[in-house]
Design a protein around this nucleic acid. Structure first.
Lengths: 231, 231
DNA sequence: ACCTGAACACCGTTCAAGT
DNA sequence: ACCTGAACACCGTTCAAGT
């Protein structure tokens, strides 16, 4: 017969070197993807790793340092199209879609990213790639930089919007509530909005199509007058 | 001689009806603007109001309800240009600038807004206005809705970016650190990025100019082929 | 009805202690 | 060097009690 154990922590002492920064980041991303940003807790992360909370502090100074490392890791892992196979404009489009896909696949990571101050070294590889493609499309140095920032801002804003929408839509009876709100609006005060209610309802549904529509028009504006479109 | 008071709370009982939803929202916005989103605490809000923490719960069910009401209040208070005085395209530009200005003037409110699921009834007035202007610019019902969402996403992404950048830049010696990072980058791995370092450094400085540059090119892409530009 | 303080179940992190 | 539990100063919120 064994000695009665305390109910809460039947965990034995973890052997040395069970932990390392990589294992911690893997667990952090898994936790974020599975349970969301608000569940991303030092205590929950430790449990995920089968370890005492304070063990993590041997590898990272604090939670912010983990958040930064998670963002870094994800941004470095963006899958990009192989270079040169496409016209610059098409390749640029694919890169933007890749970044957007990463954000919508790891929504909690995006939340993390947008709530912390921006370090200069995020997503270096992607930025270089975008700048090169913009230059090859005929933009000046100054315009290429402006355009790259504009694209990134649109991608982030769009992904954030999609996440919030999809979270709102998966609540119980959300569609009915939205429809009811539209029906309650005064057509005198909001004539255009009420007349476009059907289009508004259905535009919310497919976030990717919405993103691509906006991206194509944005690219059109950014690359206008840079030679004939190459498609 | 008065009886010795406890040090921590020399506050007397607040008279009845000192509190109401409006006073609470005023205090919340003041607190957010002054001390930032991470300082927006029920206890801090109560102190701002000179009241016990739990007094607030008589007027709002919980903190999320206050956050939603703050967002609502701010979005309803966006100052818009008076209608009809400008060509649709210019007026649309002004509306976008107004929304962007609100967000950069209340950065903590934007953080609040982006971290909560999106209710359908945010910023109804602005949305209706934007849709009307897009329709008058010649866009179809479907395209007007797509374009309105695209614009809003760009505005949010851009404002969020500005906030994070400006917060990062006001840290001690931030510019020097960014410059050092650029200098340390390998020109072989990141040829375009390193060659554009001066442009990148200076593009970060004026967030409003960056926003306007992007907005003008986006509008150009959205309204392309909708008749001659009216300027 | 409105305001109050104590208490509960959380959180990130410091500290001294084990191995 | 790496892992541990207790403790501290926070947080949002429940509850029973005052007026």
């Amino acid at each position: 017969m064994s000695v009665p154990q305390p109910v809460r922590s039947p965990r034995r002492r973890a052997p040395r070197n069970t932990l390392n920064p990589d294992r911690i980041l893997d667990a952090a991303i898994a936790l974020l993807d599975r349970d969301g940003a608000e569940a991303f807790t030092m205590r929950a992360l430790a449990e995920e790793l089968g370890v005492a909370t304070m063990a993590i502090y041997s590898h990272f100074r604090n939670k912010d340092e983990i958040s930064d490392a998670v963002a870094q890791r994800l941004l470095d892992g963006i899958e990009l199209p192989c270079g040169g196979a496409l016209a610059p404009r098409c390749e640029l489009r694919e890169v933007c879609l890749g970044v957007h896909r990463l954000f919508t696949e790891h929504p909690s990571a995006l939340q993390l990213l947008t709530s912390r101050p921006l370090r200069g070294d995020d997503a270096i590889g992607v930025i270089d790639r975008m700048l090169a493609l913009l230059r090859r499309s005929g933009l000046s140095a100054k315009d290429a930089v402006r355009a790259q920032v504009t694209l990134m801002q649109y991608i982030v804003g769009s992904a954030l919007w999609s996440i919030r929408r999809s979270r709102a839509l998966c609540e119980e009876g959300a569609r009915e509530r939205v429809r009811a709100k539209f029906d309650a609006l005064s057509p005198e005060r909001y004539p255009t909005l009420t007349s476009l209610a059907p289009e508004l309802m259905c535009a919310q549904e497919d976030a990717v199509a919405q993103f691509e529509w906006g991206l194509d028009h944005l690219l059109c504006g950014l690359l206008a007058g840079q030679g004939p479109p190459e498609d």
